[in-house]
Nucleic acid binder design. Sequence first.
DNA 1: AATGAATGAGAATTCATTCAT
DNA 2: TATGAATGAATTCTCATTCAT
Lengths: 192, 192, 192, 192
Amino acid sequence: MATQQTDEKIIKAFSKLVLKLGYQGTTTKRIASEAGVNESTIFRHFKDKHSILEQLVNTYSRDIEQIGQSFEFTGDIVQDLMRVATIYHDFVANHQVVFLLGLRESYRFPEIGQALRQLPKRFKNLVVTNFNEMVEAGEIRATANVTEEATNFILLNFGNAVFTYAYPTARLQVPMKAFLAENIRTFAEHLQ
Amino acid sequence: MATQQTDEKIIKAFSKLVLKLGYQGTTTKRIASEAGVNESTIFRHFKDKHSILEQLVNTYSRDIEQIGQSFEFTGDIVQDLMRVATIYHDFVANHQVVFLLGLRESYRFPEIGQALRQLPKRFKNLVVTNFNEMVEAGEIRATANVTEEATNFILLNFGNAVFTYAYPTARLQVPMKAFLAENIRTFAEHLQ
Amino acid sequence: MATQQTDEKIIKAFSKLVLKLGYQGTTTKRIASEAGVNESTIFRHFKDKHSILEQLVNTYSRDIEQIGQSFEFTGDIVQDLMRVATIYHDFVANHQVVFLLGLRESYRFPEIGQALRQLPKRFKNLVVTNFNEMVEAGEIRATANVTEEATNFILLNFGNAVFTYAYPTARLQVPMKAFLAENIRTFAEHLQ
Amino acid sequence: MATQQTDEKIIKAFSKLVLKLGYQGTTTKRIASEAGVNESTIFRHFKDKHSILEQLVNTYSRDIEQIGQSFEFTGDIVQDLMRVATIYHDFVANHQVVFLLGLRESYRFPEIGQALRQLPKRFKNLVVTNFNEMVEAGEIRATANVTEEATNFILLNFGNAVFTYAYPTARLQVPMKAFLAENIRTFAEHLQ
DNA sequence: AATGAATGAGAATTCATTCAT
DNA sequence: TATGAATGAATTCTCATTCAT
């Protein structure tokens, strides 16, 4: 069996289990059985259990760099913020494991916390840049406090993401689509 | 030594340790040494380790009922929202342990998740009620989408709380006081 | 069961097994079953497996200090050397485990090597002192090379001890009693 | 690659590692990496890990037969014993690995012990023969106890060898050259 | 009511060895 | 012949919990 396939099987099993069982609950024995490999095989592919997580975090960090590369402002604040929020939530959805581990385990593994903090930073920059351009273009009221609005925007999205993924069983009755379509719109309209 | 004192010592030790070390990191051995009691004494006071957490959650649930009992709207939206936000953050600050455990461990202990979800619900109700009254009184634009604004308000505060307590080392550079004074004000002003 | 009893049972079991099976062969599982305690009990009495060995080494080091405290030279070289040799071999016999572990494992646990090297040093000093006094008293030829003779004496005894304990099944056909009675006598007489 | 080359590479790697790390510390993984071959290749060349050691022991046993074949007594006791001692120490130096493994692991692998015991036997014979001839020739005092002197000579050299190789970091401050030149001379002179 | 001692069920990891190519 | 991948058995150690006093 090709090495990479096994790598992937292990990572997949790890990811799946971590969501259900947390990091500690995801024992190497369970990973092995979920991945359909021998327990010791895990250690031929990863130095130790923690390295599996590390690899996920690395992927996360690499992916962060790509975010918003091709983003282009349309000048329509509602459209733009909805797209930024969508990108944000797609990213989180694609990196649920790291996102959740960051929430749950960053006190144990500082590297995760560090990686995670890049995300809001990056998005805030994106939003602030957007806002400033729009203020100049007169599309946002000149009186708007750009920094605070940007922070609020990030916190709003972050709060929603945490709610969605940390309490998956009973979300605050705002499905993600509705959140993006309505709550973000509501927020955006205030700026016009 | 009176039973209750020992109970409290154990709960205190547990709470202190959980913040630093998480639930699993908070071993009964460490609880005992932090509380200054024998490890087996813990099991005379609590059925098992999980029951310590349960008791904290019960206190949390009881305290939630008290929230906003005596809250009175002034009719000034900025003032009111700032007060609601303050109450929210004070509550979270006083129940950090449960708040964090909810974030980290609710996937393992559904009861925590359940208890925690009461908080935003309750606050949302408080805010919605407030908003509706204000809309009637003409202090909030009639066109405002009350439910969404309330949700946004809650998510914003929740997001900030998570940031503050889950990543204590590197918060998004918004100290709580500033957040309450400025970010909430900014949010509130949009509604006028 | 009193703590010390269990301590001793573990140490005894460890010692017995190490002689047969070496350090690595002496697994905690085997120690437990030999000592009649649960495997995890070992770790409540000793920080880790290595600490059991450490304790033996400490005892060894402490005992070394006592050696020869009450030794008094009779002035008869044959008698004196036979007594020194007897003390040496009794000491080794009473500390077989550490002696053997030193031989076998000192490359892994430098502390053992360090402790072990005290023994020949100490004995050499004892012998050199003895010799010098005797040279002055005219009981040893003035031409004798005291240091070299002392070294030879130590190496001779050390060699015999290693042979006896490292290859217990087939000693060089010199039983310890005979060695002390005859070989040491032979050595001693050369000095007169 | 010729089979023998690989054989040798593995033996070489094994020998080098065993000196530093002992038998158990010399894992097949490390042997492979030191030898520059794949781990599983080892098992195509040797039935199992133990067989590598076996082969070394066989070489040792074969080499023992050669010892002293061409040795000729000069009749000068000092010269002769110094030469015997030199041959002994050269042999040990050339077979350090087996010598050390014998010291450390003979309790596990009796064959090593068996092989090792040949060495002192053989040398003792050599010395006894020598001594007897000299006694006849009047070069050694007729009163000398030949067997005991021979045993002492062997144990002295053995003791020195163990000290040198088992505690390489802190030998009893007698460098091998000095030992051969002076200690052996001292010993020899007593026989004249 | 509190303690000290002991326990059993795992947990992560290592290692010699085998198997398929 | 040599390799890369996989394995199973074993090892040290941890932890919540129970038992006897």
